[in-house]
Design a protein around this nucleic acid. Sequence first.
DNA 1: TTGTATGCGTTATCAG
DNA 2: CTGATAACGCATACAA
Lengths: 342, 342
Amino acid sequence: MKHNEKAPAGAMVVKLEMVAQAAGVSPSTVSRILNGTAVVSEAKKQAVNEAIAKLGFVPNPIARGLAGGRTFSIGVITQSIDSPFYGGALRGIEEALAPDGYSPLFVSGHWDAVQEARCIDVLRSRRVDGIIVLTGRLSDKVLKACAKTLPVVVTGRALKAPGLFALNFDNFQGGQLATRHLLDLGHRQIAFIAGDDGHPDATERHRGYRAALEAAGVAYNPALVVSGRYYEESGRLAVERLLDSGCRFTAIFSANDQMAQGAALGLYRRALRVPDDISIVGFDDLAQSAYALPPLSTVRHPAVEMGRLAATAMLQLLRGDKPVVEVPVPQVIARESSQRLR
Amino acid sequence: MKHNEKAPAGAMVVKLEMVAQAAGVSPSTVSRILNGTAVVSEAKKQAVNEAIAKLGFVPNPIARGLAGGRTFSIGVITQSIDSPFYGGALRGIEEALAPDGYSPLFVSGHWDAVQEARCIDVLRSRRVDGIIVLTGRLSDKVLKACAKTLPVVVTGRALKAPGLFALNFDNFQGGQLATRHLLDLGHRQIAFIAGDDGHPDATERHRGYRAALEAAGVAYNPALVVSGRYYEESGRLAVERLLDSGCRFTAIFSANDQMAQGAALGLYRRALRVPDDISIVGFDDLAQSAYALPPLSTVRHPAVEMGRLAATAMLQLLRGDKPVVEVPVPQVIARESSQRLR
DNA sequence: TTGTATGCGTTATCAG
DNA sequence: CTGATAACGCATACAA
């Protein structure tokens, strides 16, 4: 059965014009009331609102988009729609956008600048009112160019440009805190599983690790640094390389929780116990990390909150305001995967 | 800075009309070629395609939606945009829709029939061409009514109606398989952490558990069945209740991986070891479950694949075809959280 | 303050 | 096979 027929008469869609007729005013007046575009007499406003309620009128965003150039939808470029970390951010965005009548349009860039650029095209063709970019690999240049046409909010980098707002989490400090936590527990030989160098946040966490080490008078040892790709498996592989290298270490700081979990499995495979033999600290504080065995010590990176803030900033940009948001600061959550060196 | 100005001249958007002019044909002809609505001479087709390529023309879905009544977007009602299980399904949907030029529009129902109904309104007002409902709490009646206006694909239930296609995973068999796996390992006292009774899939898994037990001549013991709400924490709580009840059991079958992970933590807190003291089998095979400690035995429920199938079915419905899809069968993935009873 | 007329970018319906 | 022309549902100059 095809679905190309118009809706059945019973489910007839009410249009603005019908509201106007029912209220005894012109369509433009109805439109004005809907958008608050101009002052309308209280009497007509009432009549129109009643008509809207009675007829159950819902403005057609499609027509609205064509006519007014606004679609009340915000494009969101995430990297993978099923990422445990970014998933939280998507939820935050969804929550913050809803009260204002905006809908998010999620597209996945898969950590690939080319695909991300294609995402921008898709979003642009769908006439979104703004774009939120969750980290990713797009160059600052592309982002700035994009911001010339549409308001843009981007996370995971520091950047300043007209029409663009960057929401940056302090990954450097986060890296420092995690490392210092291990240092405070008496560890001196701390390995680091780095994220992909393509990520600015990954390099920042790395910098933080190094800075904390040096501040404590511990030499930075490149042999203790291996890089992964932010997935569990790469954490497992990293640990194997570390172990095979013969370098001694008593603790691991992993640039994200997923790799930390993979690292834990790698250790388990070599009959090494966490935290008795090796302490581990992750980064992100995924929901699942509290249920890891042992529960994972980590740096809290509030994804939902970040998403909410990004959306709020976008709403402010749309209103023509300069966004003012307070980015949460990193905080270490000490659970059971890290313990004092014995 | 506001963004209401038209795009700068440089980034001028090419419209269908311009393509027509460049190719020396009428707009209708271009439209026909784009949509394959009618037969067009090969010569003009070439000219038009060249013009499209040269100008980099991209049809405007908004205008398309207004004029043709189709928006090339498919509404997807998921329960929580950051669910580890449904996330995979979203990815599958995204992947399967893309080649045909459709975009998914994700909205979250939060396991609440009222919110889900509101989602339908939002999607309808955005004029989606069809709706995919991932399980949820909507009544069959509402779904059927919805299918009268729009093609609907729903997962997690068996249902037949015109314009509607139900994609049901065999949860009953899955429950059976998991239980039989434990039975085969010699376990006889098998506890079951059930999912919320509101979920049809949860009750099916429960039925499967019971059927497998009885088929093996093991009496179904209600005292060994506790229910959770599909989240980690409820799994932990369930295990505590089980332990506190004093009932003996040597294995646990959890209705999903998330609760299994919570249960594992609960056991850990009581100094019980998995699998040495208690075996655990989950359900879903989340990506993270392969990295749990110990790696979790579970029933594979291929989320990505299910999403892909749902989207494919939707595409077929849209084409006017009767969907034919082969739903994957459950399969137990034996890892290390389950072992032979000693 | 309000109504009229026009346009947004396509598709669909007509003639030809 | 192809080209005019009229919708699609709403917002917005412009006029009143």
